[in-house]
Design a protein around this nucleic acid. Structure first.
Lengths: 253, 253
DNA sequence: CGTAGCTTTGAGTGTTATCAACTCTCGTGG
DNA sequence: CCACGAGAGTTGATAACACTCAAAGCTACG
C-alpha cells in the first residue's frame, strides 16, 4: 500500500528499482538515509533482475561488477573444494545484501544460486563507492552492513567449530525464524526454500544427519515437519537447545 | 634502516605512530594511499599501545572506540559460549587489522587477547570514518580490508565445516607460513605464539587432537616439531594435504 | 502416470572427543 | 644452583557422535 503514486497501477515494466517505494528499505541499504540521499542511491542502482530457481547470480571467479540486494526469494552462496565438497557460506533473504566478499580481489570467491524464483536489485559497485564518498550516511551504512556480515560469519564459525549437530540445527531454525519475523511474517511457520543437502552444507553436516534431526525434533514435539514446511512449536525450548542446554554436553561453570 | 631521519636515534618516546616510516605500510591500511593522505591518516591514529602476553585489547561487550592494527606480536580473537566453549575466530599478525566486527552494533562481539608482547596502533573509528569520506583511496582500502576479512572467514568456514582434522592443521600451518613470508621471514620456520588449545579452538578440534596431528606430521617427515617451533619440511606435500589429497576421503570427479 | 530428485530410515563404521596419566619446560624462590 | 610447581604438551584407552553406504518411500513436475 504505497502512500503516494498509487495511481500508477500497471507499472510492472518499470525496470528501475525505487528504494523509496520499497517495503524493505528499513532493512536494506537505505536504512538511515534521508529522502534525497535515497533518490541518489536509486539512480546508482542499475536494474532489477529476476532469477529462476537454480539460476546463478554469479559464479566463482567472475569479476566483481555489482553487489546485490534480495528483493524477494532466497539465494545461497557456496564455496567449493577441488574434490567437490561444498560449504554453503550463507543464505540470503529479502532485505539482505551479498557480494561483499568480491571487493577484496575484484572477483567473486564463491558462487551464488537462487533457491527459488528470486528478484534482486543490482548495485554496480564503482558507482556505489563513488556515491558513498559523497553521502556519509551511505558510507556508514555500508561499513555497518559489511560488519554485520563479519559478525554473522563469526557466529557461523562458532556453530561449525563448537556446536553439536543438534545445537546447529536449532540455531539455524531460529535464525530463519527471526529473519522471517523481521519481514513481518509469522515466526513459527517456516517454508524452507533449501534442500536438506543445502542445510547440511551450511551446517557442516551430512544431509542424512539433518533429516534425522528434523525427525527427532518432531518426535520430541519441538517442531512439526512436512517436507520443507516447518512449524516451530516451542521457540523457548529451541533457544535453550541452541545454547547447549539440550541435555548432553556437561555444562561447566 | 630508515632512509631519512636516521639521526633521531633516541626517539622511543614518540608515542605517535608514523605510518609513512612504518615497514608494514605496504600491508596495512596505508596501502594505495599517496604521501599526503598517509600523513592525514597519521593524524587520525591516536597512539601506539603495548600489550603484555595475555593482556586484553578489548573484551566482549566493550563499546567500539577504535580499530587496531598489529605492529608487532600477535593477537587472537575469541568468541565464547555460555558454557565456556570457545571459538577462536582469528589470529592477527603484524600488518593486519582487527575490530571491524564491532561496527555493526557499536560494541565488540568477541574478545581480543595478546598471545605475546604486542604493539598495536589504535585507530579511533569515528575519525577514520570521517577521513574515509574525504579520502576516496582510504575508503576503498577500508572496503577492501573488510572484504578480505569476510573472505578469510569464509575460508575458515570451509575448514570447520568440510575439512578433516588433518586438512585443517595443514591449512593452518600454510596460512602462518604465507603470512610470515609476506613479512620477510622464512616460510619454513614457524615460531608459534599460541598454545595447542588456541589452535584447537581455532580449528574446532580438541587440543589433544592437535597435539596428535603434530606428532603424526612429524613421524611422516612433513614437519619438525619442538614445542612451538615448527619446521615445514615439505610445503608441497602440506599443500596437497590441505587440498584433501592426504590419502583418505575418496576424491570424486 | 512415470521418472528423477529429494527425503527418510536403517545398519555399521570411523574419526575425533573425552578422560586420564605422565612428561616436559621454564620460571621462581629457597 | 637446584628443587619445586604450574602450565603446556604428549600419549593411551575408550566411547560417542556423526558419516557412509544402502534401500525404500515420497513429491513434484513434465
Amino acid at each position: 500500500m504505497p502512500k503516494k503514486g498509487a495511481i500508477n497501477v500497471i507499472n510492472l515494466s518499470s525496470i528501475k528499482a525505487a528504494c523509496k517505494d520499497c517495503s524493505l528499505s528499513e532493512l536494506c541499504l537505505p536504512l538511515g538515509l534521508n529522502e534525497g540521499d535515497i533518490s541518489a542511491l536509486d539512480k546508482a542502482i542499475k536494474r532489477r533482475r529476476m532469477l529462476k530457481k537454480g539460476e546463478l547470480l554469479y559464479r566463482f571467479g567472475d569479476p566483481l561488477h555489482s553487489l546485490f540486494a534480495i528483493k524477494s526469494g532466497a539465494v545461497k552462496t557456496t564455496g567449493l573444494m577441488e574434490d567437490g565438497r561444498a560449504q554453503v557460506t550463507g543464505f540470503y533473504l529479502p532485505g539482505e545484501l551479498l557480494g561483499f566478499d568480491a571487493i577484496n580481489a575484484d572477483e567473486h570467491p564463491c558462487s551464488a544460486e537462487a533457491l527459488e524464483a528470486t528478484e534482486v536489485c543490482e548495485i554496480p559497485f564503482p558507482a556505489l563507492e563513488t556515491l558513498a564518498a559523497q553521502v556519509p550516511g551511505l558510507q556508514h551504512q555500508l561499513f555497518k552492513v559489511m560488519s554485520r556480515e563479519i559478525v554473522h560469519e563469526e557466529q557461523h564459525l562458532m556453530m561449525l567449530g563448537r556446536m553439536t549437530a543438534e545445537e546447529r540445527l536449532a540455531t539455524c531454525l531460529l535464525s530463519f525464524s527471526r529473519r522471517q519475523a523481521r519481514l513481518g511474517q509469522p515466526a513459527e511457520r517456516l517454508q524452507l526454500s533449501m534442500s536438506r543437502q543445502d542445510i547440511g552444507d551450511y551446517l557442516g553436516l551430512a544431509l542424512e544427519t539433518v533429516s534425522r534431526l528434523f525427525s527427532r525434533f518432531q518426535d520430541d514435539g519441538l517442531i512439526g515437519v512436512q517436507g520443507r514446511r516447518i512449524e516451530l512449536h516451542d521457540l523457548e525450548r529451541l533457544r535453550s537447545m541452541a545454547n547447549g542446554k539440550g541435555q548432553s554436553h556437561s555444562a561447566r561453570a
